[in-house]
């Protein structure tokens, strides 16, 4: 027990020294996957092709079920909590691929990862966060009803896209100097 306690202490001691960055070898492949999967996802979203593709039974933690669907009472829905449902699984896979590849691409080390690169990374992260939430605040006042779902869907990925674009642009300027 004492040995385990010492090991846990050791992990916390070295935690601030870790870089939390991925190896440089993942940068290229994750970038290709990230920038290719975004247009595929946008095409499928705008053409409403998600639902029909790869329909399988999935376990849903929280889902609604329509109880009465007459023209007069079509809005009455009831919750059945967690249960098995039929669902097109492509959007879930694409969301996973875009987020994971985006994070790996954004947080992979450069070939020479020095302190100036770290500063550029932090500056880009702050700027992308400001732009991301600035745009969300604007859309909050100008997009209403069900269309707001599109804003929420885009908002899942915009910070990653913005950060990657700003960081790559700043790196381009840095390497050009």
């Amino acid at each position: 027990m004492n040995n385990l306690y010492q090991k846990i202490l050791l992990v916390f001691k070295f935690l601030p020294l870790m870089t939390y960055l991925f190896n440089n070898k993942w940068k290229g492949i994750s970038g290709w996957i990230f920038y290719l999967s975004i247009p595929i996802g946008m095409y499928l979203l705008f053409t409403d092709s998600f639902e029909g593709l790869m329909k399988i039974r999935v376990f849903s933690l929280f889902s609604y079920e329509t109880i009465i669907t007459t023209p007069q009472t079509e809005n009455i829905i009831g919750s059945k909590g967690f249960r098995w449902i039929e669902n097109g699984f492509v959007d879930e896979i694409l969301t996973f691929v875009i987020i994971v590849s985006g994070i790996i691409h954004a947080f992979s080390k450069e070939k020479i990862e020095d302190e100036l690169i770290s500063k550029i990374r932090i500056d880009s992260l702050v700027l992308s966060l400001y732009i991301n939430y600035g745009v969300l605040v604007l859309f909050n006042f100008f997009v209403y009803e069900l269309n707001y779902i599109y804003v929420m869907i885009f908002h899942l990925f915009t910070i990653l896209i913005l950060f990657n674009l700003i960081f790559r642009y700043k790196l381009y300027i840095h390497y050009k100097s």
Binding site: I112, E115, L116, S177
Partner: peptide, 25 residues
Amino acid sequence: SNKLGVSRQTINSIENNKYFPSLEL
């Protein structure tokens, strides 16, 4: 830059006062 383990561009930025290095550097 090779002696310090940083990129050549970082040395250039320090020399041109665009970046102030850490105490360690």
